[in-house]
Amino acid sequence: MSGVLLLSCPDQQGIVAATSAFIARFGGNIVHAEQHVDRLAGNDVSVFFQRIEFDLARPNVKHEAFLDAFQVVAEQFEMTVDLRNTAVPVPTAIMASKQPHCLYDLLTRWRSGELPMDLRVVVSNHPDHRDICEHMGVPYVHLPVTKETKPQQEQQVLATLAKHGVELVVMARYMQILTDDFVSHHPMRIINIHHSFLPAFIGANPYRQAHERGVKLIGATAHYATADLDEGPIIAQETAHVTHRENVAELTARGRDIETVVLARAVRSHLEHKVAVQGHKTIVYS
């Protein structure tokens, strides 16, 4: 068995020693460990975070048995514990609209083995990408939506995700605002790419806004979708320097390149169990 432990608890002495000793007693070997102490402003309590990758020499050990045994340590330090099996890729769905760049990039990275996800389905409110998805061997579900049919369409999307056993949802420029009800079904398991360096230039036509303001940086932000539009915890960001010589089309092209890289980076971090959420922000392990 191989796995990743994601831990958080009030910071105190002895956490690393107790966790390492437990894994050793269980016949495990730690192959990578990283930790962080978050000292919250105005709060006397600091929060300890740790990510531990480990292998167990006993191949038949079930994750449930490991977690049950680990509860002694968890209770001692008031830990929140998440155990992930690194041998099992995360069941994933991609949602897309008409713009192809993020979808096609994710499909290519998945087919090449760069993204360790179990891609179950692509859902779109447009029919445009059916051929490429079916060529890649991914089921494509077209669920059109209008303002009047949005509640029914969202229920159809949720039913599709449930049918395919999806855990992670990636919004690859899916140009529909998700309702609070939709987001509540996949808390901190919906990754969105925003076509600007949040919080600047939100809303429609960000590259036109940027051009009109004569910006010298453009960027993109990948974050978890929450009930607050574009306010979810940020996973990855990137910027590029631009000049007054670049027109809107050139800024848009450069921006799309950034979007694909940032979204793929965020998705990979989630798939590799390297993201911990603390309030409105994330700890992203290396």
Results as ranks from 00 to 15, higher is better:
F70K: 07
A65D: 15
I234D: 11
A204E: 06
H129N: 06
P89W: 04
P206E: 13
S8F: 00
F54N: 10
L40T: 14
D180V: 15
C133F: 07
H186I: 02
R130W: 04
Q76E: 06
V81S: 07
D128K: 09
Q71I: 03
A225L: 14
D131S: 15
L271A: 07
T92C: 10
F49P: 07
E78L: 10
M188F: 14
R84D: 09
T160V: 05
E154I: 00
Q35M: 14
Q156R: 04
A200C: 10
A24T: 14
V138I: 15
L251W: 12
V31G: 08
G42N: 06
L251P: 10
I23S: 08
K62H: 12
H36M: 13
Y140Q: 01
N247R: 14
L107S: 03
G214T: 07
A236G: 03
V242Y: 11
V37E: 05
E148K: 12
S2R: 15
G28H: 06
P127E: 12
D55Y: 02
D38K: 11
G137K: 00
A74N: 04
I234G: 09
A57Y: 07
V47T: 15
L229G: 04
V183S: 00
V90A: 13
N43Y: 02
P187H: 09
Q13F: 14
R39L: 10
G28V: 08
Q12G: 09
G219M: 04
D180I: 13
Q152I: 00
L103N: 02
Q156L: 03
T149V: 03
L67T: 15
M79W: 01
V145N: 00
A276S: 15
V169Q: 03
A210L: 06
L5I: 09
P59S: 10
A87W: 01
V61S: 03
R256T: 05
R111M: 12
P199Q: 10
S8C: 01
V170R: 05
D38F: 14
E114P: 03
G255C: 07
F26T: 07
T146C: 07
